[in-house]
Amino acid sequence: MKTQHDYLVQLEAEAIYILREVAGQFERPALLFSGGKDSICLVHLALKAFRPGKFPFPLVHVDTGHNFPEAIIYRDNLAKQIDERLIVRYVADTIQQKKLQDGKGKFPSRNGLQTYTLLDVIEEFEFDACIGGARRDEEKARAKERIFSVRDEFGQWDPKMQRPELWNIYNGKIHKGENVRIFPISNWTELDVWNYIKRENIQLPSIYFTHERECILTESGQLMNTNEFVKREETDVVVTKKVRYRTVGDMTCTAAIESEAYNVDDIITELKEARISERGATRMDDRVSEAAMEDRKKGGYF
């Protein structure tokens, strides 16, 4: 019996299977699109799952206002190119409507605030399923999350009440008001994503590749992009370096890494040698406490 053992073929088949289960089980799903490499892969997988048909879901982006412009341009071009519906909702609007306090500090984060906008857009369109590009290798709370992750009306994740998930059988049955977060590439690692991008020749926003950039070198040694949202001080150590981004989050909380990687092959080589984890290298938000991600997820975050 000839069985395809190549791991990328297997991971792709699993993701397509999950996407089709979403289409079959839910009435109003959505694909949460950030312009980052993981959600770009999701769109690519959705093309494989549903073409020549249209996607059975719109792309939804929660725009924090602190996104990299390159990611936003990429997002708009992609939606146009594949001719699928794109819904954008802005954290800035939520802040105004709900009279919320904007992020403070030197690198003001809208990480907590985007949860409000996300829950609002879920309510507005009555989404019963939201597909996301989170991976289990990113963080240890994520390592325990199901592929179909049921959230209550408040979007909350209860790690102790997760449904058992067996074989390839996904139970997406929910009550009205609840929704399910769905992670088709749960089992992919960062390196798998890059190997897939290479194999499929997927185009990415330019900030994933090396470029010269003016950055603030923080006390903990991270390279933070200088931009209008960061509170500049005279004591800032400003440097210009050849950098790239390993993850594309907000400009205020995503650090660049020094890199000479011009193309996907270079990045794969770089990652194989890298001795620091993806979130550890780039995210200020997870450094807050050991259980930072677990707490954010319980509160409705992805």
């Binding site: 709370a141 390592a143 325990k144 102790k160 997760q162 089992n187 798998d192 259980a291």
Partner: peptide, 25 residues
Amino acid sequence: GLRAEREQGITIDVAYKYFSTSKRK
């Protein structure tokens, strides 16, 4: 991975881990 597990020193839920060698993932 979960706070309760770290505090109690037990594993409550299934955790998934990934690694690869030159031969296999």
